[in-house]
Structures are given as C-alpha cells and as structure tokens.
C-alpha cells in the first residue's frame, strides 16, 4: 500500500508546525504505523526535537535523482529516531542551498513528489513533511507532494491572515498546477479559551472552514518544554491535555487515510 503523504505548512513562523509534525508523526508511530518524517526547514528542528543532529538529508532528498545509487546514498540519511516505527530525514542549513538549486533549475511542482516516489513501494504508511516559515519553491512543492495538508495557525490577532494566504496557495495549486491533494484541516494552536481575541479568531476560522477547523491545541507550557528535552509530548507527558489534543489529530488523520 502506498504511504499517505501529509504536509504541515504555514508561512507564518512559530505557529506550531514542527510541534504538530513531530507529535503527529510519533502519535501515528505509536499506533504501529511506519512513519517517515521529513524536515524541509533549514532550522533542522525536527532532528533536535527528536534528539538527533541536523544534517543534509533533506538537501539530498531535494537535489538527488532517482537512480539506484542515488537512492542507496539517500537511504543512509533515513535515521532511526530510537522510537519504534518513526524515521527521520533531517534537515539543516544546506536545505537553503537546495532551494536555490530548485529555483535555478526551474524544477516542476512535482519534483518533491517524484523524489519521494522511491519510498512509496516499501512498507511506509505515512510520510510527513515539516516546512519552513516562508513562501517559496520548497513549500509549494511540499504541498504539491501532499495527499493531505494541515495548516496549523495560532489564534492570536491577525494570525489567521496567513491561513488565508495558505488557502489561496492551495486553490492555486489545485486549479492551475494539477495538484491532487486536499486540505485535511486548519489546526488552531496556542489556544486560550479565556482570551476574547482567541475566541474571535476561532469564530473567524469556523466561518471560513466549518468543520475543517480541527480540535484546537491549547497553549500548554509542557509543549514548550518538549524540544529542550528532546521528547515528544507522548514521551514528556502522555496524560496531558496537549497529548490528548494531538491524539485527536492522530485519530482524525487515521480516519481520513
């Protein structure tokens, strides 16, 4: 069976993309799914969050061809995260260079999808992309590669503007670039129900996205502590509300894939 490809994307920084990518990936792995997390952000935070070292895995994924020897080489960068069923292709600053290469060679939208096609004949169930807070070649191509897209967004003032921009991009890719994927949903993050501004942002999202607004992830100190300790929320505090909320996301994904 082909793996489901999920891209976590929002050009706005610090909205919980990496937290979501890592939590979802580990949550699915804990359900026994084989999951490959791919970090397309030059900050390389997927690796550090999981206790590994940033490295040019993503660079090679983005720039190498699909010849057998290239795939053999790339396979060395598929890291065992020390967690059952969870694998990582890490990124680092070299991912920026890959962006330049992609742009200069004017690579098609399908380039990332084609590059990961080499992984789709094995026993993987999910490939999850974490992306950088920027617009540009890699982000759009990562979305194009996706079967489903999740847009995390904080519920602070004006933060939902970037959701609008993301949606425009999805519509553009769908209408004129032959993208076949779909939007799984918008994931409100850093949510505080006590704050009027947050409730207003939620209302705003619901008007635009209806039931595609996923169960919000509340602001939780424990989530902020995870990266420093190289733990996922399911390791740090599996009983926490945050773990439960990310568990809901895992269920949602399972139901839709």
């Amino acid at each position: 069976m082909k793996p489901h490809i999920i891209t976590i994307s929002n050009q706005k920084g610090g909205v919980g993309k990496t937290t979501t990518a890592v939590s979802l990936a580990h949550g699915l792995a804990l359900k026994g799914k084989e999951v490959l997390l791919i970090d397309l952000d030059p900050q390389g935070q997927c690796a550090t969050t999981l206790g590994l070292t940033p490295e040019p895995g993503a660079f090679y994924l983005l720039t190498m061809g699909t010849e057998t020897h290239e795939t053999t080489f790339l396979k060395q960068y598929v890291r065992n995260t020390g967690r059952e069923h969870l694998w990582l292709i890490a990124g680092n600053q070299t991912t920026m260079a890959a962006q330049t290469v992609l742009n200069s060679q004017n690579k098609p939208y399908s380039v990332i999808r084609e590059s990961i096609a080499r992984f789709t004949r094995g026993n993987l169930n999910y490939i999850i992309f974490d992306t950088a807070p920027s617009v540009g070649g890699i982000q759009e191509r990562a979305v194009w590669a996706a079967d489903m897209v999740i847009i995390p967004t904080s519920t602070e003032y004006l933060s939902t503007d970037s959701v609008r921009k993301m949606t425009e991009m999805l519509i553009m890719l769908q209408q004129s670039k032959g993208w076949h994927g779909s939007l799984l949903g918008v994931l409100p993050t850093f949510y505080s129900d006590q704050l009027r501004e947050h409730r207003a942002a939620m209302e705003d999202l619901r008007q635009g996205f209806g039931d595609r607004v996923l169960t919000p992830i509340h602001r939780a100190a424990v989530l902020g502590e995870c990266p420093g300790e190289s733990k996922t929320i399911f390791e740090k505090d599996p009983e926490s509300r945050a773990a439960q909320e990310y568990q809901d996301l895992v269920q949602r994904v399972l139901k839709h894939s």
Binding site: R164, L170, I171, Q174, S182, Q207, G208
Partner: peptide, 20 residues
Amino acid sequence: VPVPTAPIPIIDQIRVTEKK
C-alpha cells in the same frame, strides 16, 4: 479579498480530505 469568486465560503473552493 484575494479570491475572485468572492461570495463562496473559502472552504467550498478547496478540495478537502474525505473520510476513507
């Protein structure tokens, strides 16, 4: 507004993931 087809709620313009 960025989307030309203004009166349609945004969610109706994007393909959404169906339940399997």
